[in-house]
């Protein structure tokens, strides 16, 4: 790189680090979506049915995610209940 190029490069943002940041976020999200076992969608569906026997919740109230930490797999289950709960 010559002297002129040096100053030109200073003006441009470092695009490689932007690329790296975007990729890290994207890849993490895509891995989280696919990593899980095949039965996850069915499990989610059935859990939703069971919960709805007691509480009226939205279709997207049940969130399931599988995380891996080393040799350990963690099944994370998130159920969002409505603000005012009505028992049946």
């Amino acid at each position: 790189m010559n002297l002129l190029g040096y100053f030109r490069a200073q003006r441009n943002k470092n695009t490689a680090s932007v690329a790296k940041e975007r990729l890290q976020i994207l890849v993490a999200r895509e891995r989280a979506q696919r990593g899980g076992p095949d039965y996850l969608p069915a499990l989610q569906e059935e859990l939703l049915l069971v919960i709805r026997r007691y509480v009226e919740v939205d279709q997207d109230a049940v969130q399931i995610q599988v995380d891996r930490e080393g040799d350990c797999e963690i099944l994370e289950l998130n159920i969002t209940l409505p603000d005012h709960q009505q028992g049946r």
């Binding site: 490069a9 470092n14 695009t15 490689a16 680090s17 690329a19 790296k20």
Partner: peptide
């Protein structure tokens, strides 16, 4: 080196 390409470490 110029920050225009992902490095092998990246």
């Amino acid at each position: 080196k110029r920050g225009e390409m992902l490095s092998l470490e990246d």
